[in-house]
Amino acid sequence: MNEERRKLNIGLAEMLCGGVIMDVTNVEEAKIAEEAGAVSVMALERIPSDIRKMGGVCRMSAPEMIMEIKEAVSIPVMAKCRIGHFAEAQILQELGIDFIDESEVLTPADEEHHINKWDFEAPFVCGACNLGEALRRVGEGAAMIRTKGEAGTGNVVEGVRHMRNLQRHIKALTVMSQDELYAEAKNLQAPIHLVQYVAEHGKLPVPNFAAGGVATPADASLLMQLGAETVFVGSGIFRSQNPAKTAKACVDAVAHYNEPVKLLEVSRGIGEAMPSISMEELKEQEKLAGRGW
């Protein structure tokens, strides 16, 4: 990826702003998502809540399944590869996928290294719990960051924690002097030029989306109001009582995220949200957000 390609890849992320990206596992779901107004779909064999239940190693989805979805919709299609699994990423790039998610939701393939995303032409999105992690991923070439939250739980608390954490730290950088920024880069374990960029602009060098545990239109609005530019909704759509209605309500809630009147209107009559898990029920090894380094 050269600078030109990087500009195109960050540009695509910018085009998705103010939208909802939905997890889909088949053509039918992809069409429901597109019809509801999703800006993009994430093609994967199992959504996070099912990954939690089934256990075992979770890998990149089968290419034919991703292709079927790609052919069924006109919006951009994303797919996930395991952290550090650059061979899976090579396959996804060959498939012509629009965005590759190097995702902690799948079982990591490398517990030390992430993918060198500069080796690829395709754009990558990566998860982050904090600013240091976000800037390390951008340093490796990510064109979009999403706060991780805790996928598949229907519990937005971790997503909120990560977004708050990130925004607080970004704000703190904007009032630091140059000599403080060098020390802060050391604390963050992040490249100094990216730390300087954040300090100067008050934002990440790439669009900042939110993910993990979004179950209702109100959850989506909350993350937008906390500074997300777009929201990923995974299990929240197709494990809810009425996926088509929930999908549309989430799309409307993101577009009108700071209008309570509209939020009330779209929150009515959409049925039950997905089954959820409180953080206390999760064992430490069941938490996905800790994956990634």
Binding site: M15, L16, C17, G19, A36, V39, S40, S74, I75, K248
Partner: peptide, 8 residues
């Protein structure tokens, strides 16, 4: 952006 989303 995405024209399909805007149309909705």
């Amino acid at each position: 952006g995405e024209s399909t989303t805007m149309l909705k």
